[in-house]
């Protein structure tokens, strides 16, 4: 009877090595066996990736980071599949060295910049809340540097009002960009107003937990804007363009009535299809409580002035 069903796209089928491995994990013991729902690559442990030179900061010193396995095993990165475990299972195919970021548009120093020329030798640790638009959240100890530092280097021109970002398109390494059903148009694009981009909380991250970013988290360079829903924090950036006009953003194109350009975390403005008043912190287990979502994800004091006088229900 089951064989009568239409073909399921191969992207939906767990690769054999993943479920085989799942079984061996089940049979085996140890910490890894606690998460057999995740793919082989999710089993990358803290300590597997090269260490970064970091300085501690006060950002989020009172927050308790979500476990590394969860931060790196539960991701939305549709270039590697739409399932939460897909990026961890599939992103190992991505080549991140060498990596070039094109910086262009309204800047005095446009060019193709090698990653090494963008990322400082010593980066800052920033422990931030991360709130997904799907109403789950985690706390991530990012490593990175203020986007403002990079922008200062390339010298935005006076007419620049927005910053546009673009993710890599490389179908041969990104299975989500292959096949007859693709969840989003590529490249994934995002954007910020220039003042949002220059805000001291906005960083480009090249690591987490003191190590290089795992591919599934957006290696080798991603944006982190902690007061906005997670999808604004674009991954695996290959292009940064300063513009005069508000740039298009992927989720806004996919669902204009559901995902606005700003997409600030706001418990008072629901997603048209679900409430944003509460969130589920990852890793709390089956019986953990939901927690109230905070205005601007808890960064109200720092960023509310950016939106003074704006109706956030209209500019959602």
């Amino acid at each position: 009877m089951v064989s009568n069903f239409p073909k399921i796209p191969s992207s939906l089928i767990t690769p054999k090595e993943v479920w085989m491995n799942r079984r061996s994990l089940l049979a085996g013991a140890g910490a890894a066996a606690m998460m057999p729902a995740l793919g082989t690559e999710a089993m990358a442990k803290l300590g597997d990736l090269p260490k970064l030179e970091t300085t501690k900061t006060d950002f989020g010193k009172d927050l308790k980071p979500t476990a590394y396995d969860y931060v790196t095993g539960y991701n939305n990165f549709y270039e590697f599949g739409t399932g939460k475990e897909d990026p961890a299972a599939n992103a190992h195919t991505l080549t991140t060295k060498p990596w070039t970021v094109k910086i262009d548009g309204l800047v005095n120093k446009p060019g193709d910049y090698a990653l090494e020329d963008i990322v400082p030798k010593v980066v800052e640790e920033r422990i931030y809340r991360f709130r997904c638009v799907e109403a789950w959240s985690m706390v991530v100890p990012w490593d990175g540097f203020p986007l403002a530092d990079l922008l200062a280097k390339v010298e935005p021109q006076g007419s620049a009002k927005y910053v546009a970002f673009e993710t890599l398109v490389r179908p041969e390494e990104m299975p989500g960009q292959n096949g007859y059903f693709q969840a989003l148009p590529w490249p994934y694009v995002e954007g910020l107003r220039l003042d949002e981009a220059m805000h001291p909380l906005t960083i480009l991250a090249n690591g987490l937990y003191g190590e290089e970013l795992p591919n599934q988290n957006g290696a080798p360079l991603r944006l982190v804007v902690p007061w906005k829903y997670g999808f604004k924090s674009i991954k695996s950036i290959v292009r940064i363009t300063l513009t005069e006009k508000q740039p298009p953003t992927t989720w806004n194109i996919a669902g204009p009535s559901e995902y606005g350009f700003y997409s600030n975390v706001n418990p008072n403005v629901d997603h048209p299809r679900w409430s944003q008043a509460t969130e589920r912190p990852l890793g709390g287990g089956l019986l953990s409580s939901n927690q109230d979502t905070l205005m601007f994800n808890g960064y109200e004091e720092q960023v509310a002035s950016l939106y003074a006088g704006m109706d956030l229900k209209v500019n959602f």
Binding site: A33, M35, A37, G73, Y74, W136, R280
Partner: peptide, 14 residues
């Protein structure tokens, strides 16, 4: 899976 902590970081959703 959910009760034994094997359903990943978000067991309720699973």
């Amino acid at each position: 899976q959910a009760l034994t902590g094997q359903a990943g970081p978000n067991p309720v959703r699973e």
